[in-house]
Design a protein around this nucleic acid. Structure first.
Lengths: 138, 138
DNA sequence: ACCCGTTATGCAAATTCGCTGCATAACGGG
DNA sequence: CCCGTTATGCAGCGAATTTGCATAACGGGT
């Protein structure tokens, strides 16, 4: 799927530099090999929850909200694993919160010190799980 | 969607009586108004996590015997992971029991508070592992 | 109030994805 | 080694998602 990778690229671009317009972002994407129109970029930003602040796009404040509760980031690993990075010592607490949500995509979680492994059924569930967990902490 | 309702029917059929083959199940479904082939039934059972045990299909979930020893349920995640849900605090104990069985399909286990991740070699080993672990506690 | 640069959106086409049956391979008990 | 049973590659089909285009809506600056 083109969309998912494009959105990941958008995230990294936004993290890496100040981007002021969707046109600019569209151009950067194209240079990176992702051809898309401003329409699509607009919808991507909407989905990602990216917000324009002080004239440039930044990651959603949901990020800060989540960090406040111990969750730092989510990443996919393979087809059936999601790895959550947490603040040291808080992984178990975050894992409990995730378990309590009883998300249907999630098969189970195992928490370490600052990392959680979240097992999902398959690839499709993986994406849904990342989204829902992120919303949980947003 | 036909599939969801058909799977619900399958669940109720399996709960209600001993079913020995997919052919038998297919026939029962048809009598209930769900026309499907054995192919679809096979895939349904896979998705539902139904396992054939003692010659008939059963759910690998909270049966008395297993629950008494801490194991609540088994699920597949992706191709190489099996997730075991346990009663709070008993995951390590259950994991030890599984490890002691030295099942050839199992590469390793990691236990949290109430969840165990069991790594297996590949898809085929996954089904075998679910069955064997379930029998261990059944 | 009016531009104009920027962003959002209705709609239809294009693309992807899931479900299914068929044919057949793989499995496993006897 | 057979034969009943179960799993799966493949292709077709329909539904749902994604996308681009055209255009509307928005918002800051004058």
């Amino acid at each position: 799927m083109q969309k998912t990778k494009r959105q990941q690229k958008i995230m990294s671009l936004i993290r890496g530099r100040r981007i002021g317009t969707q046109q600019e972002l569209t151009a950067l994407l194209e240079r990176a090999g992702f051809v898309a129109t401003q329409s699509s970029v607009s919808r991507d930003l909407e989905e990602l929850g990216v917000v324009k602040h002080n004239g440039h796009y930044t990651l959603p404040r949901a990020a800060e909200g989540a960090a406040a509760r111990g969750l730092l980031g989510l990443d996919a690993a393979g087809d059936c694993l999601v790895v959550a990075r947490c603040e040291p010592g808080l992984a178990s607490a975050v894992a409990v919160a995730i378990d309590r949500a009883h998300l249907e995509e999630i098969v189970g979680t195992v928490a370490g010190e600052d990392t959680i492994f979240i097992a999902v059924h398959e690839r499709k569930a993986q994406r849904a799980a990342i989204k829902k967990v992120w919303e949980l902490f947003g």
